[in-house]
Design a protein around this nucleic acid. Structure first.
Lengths: 233, 233
DNA sequence: TAAATTAAGTGTTAGAATTACATTTAAAAA
DNA sequence: TTTTTAAATGTAATTCTAACACTTAATTTA
């Protein structure tokens, strides 16, 4: 019996769907698009498209995201392949979901006019098409997981950010308040933040110091397999 | 511009590759098969095949594993989709890798005669075809991760096992020795093991108590989102 | 049948990490 | 000058981690 006969192999449409998380200093949001084609025209959907025969998976994800939203050079990670036979009513497709984290304000201009994508607070999402609700659930779980075991989250903030902003972000991801003193101690002890000395004064009279993320120090720690658990409480 | 035109979508061969980990009370091993077809005839490979148009992804994984090895009803989890355009020299394929954990002795009879699959100690693996080395690397990372954050590992042992056997398994997964007293305390404090009262005497004169894994208690803890980190040292 | 052998099983303690908690400080506004 | 606002900071009780060595049960051997 020849299991692996290329001639007889079925060929399948491979879709890519992108779960785009954003943060605007207040809340965690999800980027959705209103479909202007059948099936499910007019309903909200994740950013999706089909993988081309000549494309790497991650190339395809970046292309689709760019075509639909104008977003480029963003952090994009593979989440999971969704393989239900009937997940798409038109034709059997396999969808490889990817997720991304972005700073909403920094990318506002790319998104604006031409694209029909909108941000929804994570607490007030419309029902999504196909199995996109499952994808979102899986992405949220992954985001929480990643945020507690790696120094993720910086992608969701501007290059310079204050510790109160960073704490707010983590509180959104975890959905609960964190102790300010313990949070600062923990984050700073990772030694991947640099205090720029500049202050951001829009949110208080005293002003909060602006920090930047030290990517090279972070990469070094990761290469060395350092424990990056945040253990936030 | 119509991104999502089903007519124009490329159709791609979707492969499934399975990384099968096994444990025989001594070593962690990997199940490989010698290819008897081109390309790469005669070289060692993961268990692989093509997804059918009518199959769920996980159905396909189970079918392929069964066809190639006779193994059924085993724990199989999706790992990652590998999407390099040139990963297979014959034709562009997307491969969704899955991994499994089994007790080698318990499944020995299913594997035996008819199949040309063999177990290789994880330390002495041959070079694998295509991107199978990358898949293996990713699966090992995932296994280590899972083993430290969930009570995985029981799948690799018989229904009844001793604590020294379980410790040996974890030592194989982590690739380093663990302290016996700390290991026992930690594992038992999870409260998912049941001492059967029976003793297993093949490995010592005194004999070690046989334990079983309390699946329902484990499921309950998982539902409640309990922290399952083992933090073994 | 006593002694030797073998691996299983068991507790303690110093040091580190976690967590809960309240006051001071800097700067602008009144 | 006083008030207001949010940022920044330290400590102590408790829990967890990790290092460490002897006793026990049962078989084997002398």
């Amino acid at each position: 019996m020849e299991i692996t006969s290329y001639q007889n192999a079925d060929r399948i449409v491979v879709a890519i769907d992108c779960i785009i998380f954003g943060f605007d200093k207040e809340q965690l949001k999800l980027l959705l698009i209103k479909r202007d084609f059948e099936p499910e025209r007019g309903h909200w959907s994740l950013m999706g498209g089909f993988l081309k025969g000549c494309e790497h998976l991650h190339q395809g994800a970046h292309r689709i995201l760019y075509d639909l939203t104008g977003l480029k050079n963003i952090y994009l990670e593979q989440l999971h392949a969704f393989g239900e036979v009937t997940r798409d009513p038109v034709e059997r497709t396999l969808s490889v979901a990817h997720y991304a984290l972005i700073d909403i304000e920094a990318h506002a201009f790319e998104l604006s006019e031409d694209y029909s994508a909108s941000w929804f607070p994570i607490q007030e999402l419309p029902d999504l098409i196909f199995d996109h609700n499952d994808m979102l659930k899986a992405a949220l779980d992954r985001l929480q997981y990643k945020a507690s075991h790696e120094a993720i989250g910086f992608e969701l903030l501007p290059d310079k950010f204050t510790l109160p902003e960073l704490q707010k972000l983590y509180e959104c991801i975890y959905g609960r308040p964190l102790d300010k003193r313990n949070f600062r101690r923990r984050i700073l002890s990772m030694d991947v933040l640099i205090n720029t000395g500049e202050k951001e004064k829009s949110s208080s009279k005293k002003g909060a110091y602006l920090y930047t993320f030290d990517q090279s120090k972070f990469n070094k720690l990761q290469r060395e397999g350092q424990n990056m658990d945040l253990n936030l409480y």
